[in-house]
Simulated scan of single mutants.
Amino acid sequence: MSLIPNSWYWKQLKLALTCFLCCLPIAFFFLINFYLTLVILILWSLIIIKNAYFNPITLNILYTRFSFELLLESPDLLSQFRPLGLDLFKTQLHDYSISFHEHEKKKFQKELTYLRSFKNKKLSPDQRQSYDILEYYLNINLNRELSNEFDYHNYLINQKSGPQFDIISFIIKFHRILKLNDAEAYLIRVQRISKAFDQLIEQQIERRHRNIETPRFVLQRVIDGLEAFHKQLRDEPNKSPLIITFIDKLNDRICSKEKQNELINRLLNIIKINVIPAYDRLLNILHEDLSNVKTDHGLWKLPNGDKYYKLCLEYHTTTNMSPDEIHELGKTHVERIQNEMRK
């Protein structure tokens, strides 16, 4: 199982760590008098709480806190990078819920406000560069995917890098099984595919309400991919990557053959009871969208689509060039390359 109980989330971990750090001065009680210890405890607690929850004292603490929280909110990143060799949330999957999306917006807005409080302070060249990078990152996200105007303009479910495929790929590629509780965590993660897919359905329905239609060709390719994987899970589960990968990662050093067979049977049961119905629910929603979607694809049809298109160009090119300028630049370079090839 996870080293941290499943009911814990990053907020509880942050609170626990803050309380622990605040209580450290109590150790001084055994070395010096009570009143001095009390003063140290109060001052130390104020410093810790300020740095943990409010505008930190230094810019470096802000960077560290932001990175720390970003990591704790991303079970997939924790499993990939395993800081200090730990995978604290190895039973968890990324949160795709609307409530978490709203939480991210508030967090980015707060961190940008805190960051800009250092703007006019004396910074070293390295600090100034780090400041500019983080400000750009926060600002471009708040103007695009985390803005009230465009937060649902992106097609979360898509054929290229949609979470409906990435979740499976992540579990297969990055979930390590080195001991028995890692194998148990794998089963829990697979079981939580159901919850993750329900969150994707929630996101897709929200886009319906906002008249954000996923293009027909995107929906069709997503459905084709999901149906192929769904068919394999239903008809030949033993050939599914979820099962094959799990079997490959198990060995006699982890547990006995009998225990391995028990784990495999439990995984097959989880797929039957939890995962396959989740695919059914998601496919039903996508088929409904496919039956109603129009063929006039393009960002131009979305509310303020032209503005969103410019923001996407800025995000992907890191320039402030207009769409026409980028198009002309591309034509110029194509002509130059073709002329060089003809020589």
Results as ranks from 00 to 15, higher is better:
Ile254Gly: 13
Glu335Arg: 05
Tyr186Thr: 02
Ile26Pro: 00
Ile276Gly: 14
Leu329Arg: 09
Val222Arg: 02
Leu123Tyr: 05
Asn284Pro: 00
Glu340His: 09
Pro75Thr: 01
His94Ser: 05
Asn120Ala: 08
Gln220Ala: 13
Leu138Ala: 05
Tyr35Glu: 12
Ile337Trp: 12
Glu149Gln: 15
Cys19Val: 06
Leu115Thr: 04
Asn269Ser: 15
Trp44Leu: 03
Ile270Gly: 10
Glu335His: 09
His153Asp: 12
Phe229Met: 13
Leu267Lys: 09
Pro241Ile: 11
Asn261Trp: 07
Thr332Arg: 14
Leu290Arg: 00
Asp151Leu: 04
Leu156His: 03
Ile140His: 05
Asp198Leu: 08
Cys312Tyr: 10
His287Arg: 15
Leu17Tyr: 09
Glu69Ile: 14
Asp235Thr: 08
Asn284Trp: 06
Leu226Cys: 01
Lys160Asp: 09
Ala278Ile: 07
Ala52Cys: 10
Tyr63Arg: 12
His209Phe: 10
Leu31Ala: 13
Leu21Asn: 06
Glu202Trp: 03
Asp252Ile: 06
Asn211Ser: 12
Ser79Phe: 02
Asn143Lys: 14
Lys259Ile: 14
Leu112Val: 08
Gly330Gln: 03
Ser74Phe: 00
Ile201Thr: 06
Leu46Cys: 14
Gly305Val: 12
Thr318Phe: 13
Arg128Gln: 15
Leu78His: 05
Tyr53Gln: 07
Ile243Ser: 06
Ile273Trp: 06
Arg189Asn: 07
Glu328Val: 07
Asn139Ala: 09
Ile270Arg: 08
Asp166Thr: 09
Phe66Leu: 07
Ile32Ser: 04
Leu226Glu: 02
Ile177Lys: 08
Tyr96His: 12
Leu72Gln: 03
Arg176Pro: 00
Thr64Leu: 15
Asn143Gly: 13
His175Phe: 00
Val222Gly: 02
Arg207Met: 14
His297Met: 13
Ile49Trp: 02
Ser256Leu: 08
Pro215Val: 14
Asn269Leu: 13
His101Trp: 12
Arg65Gln: 04
Thr319Lys: 01
Asn274Glu: 15
Asn158Ala: 11
Glu73Trp: 01
Leu180Gln: 08
Ala27Trp: 12
Arg128Ser: 15
Met341His: 06
Ile49Arg: 02
Leu78Phe: 00
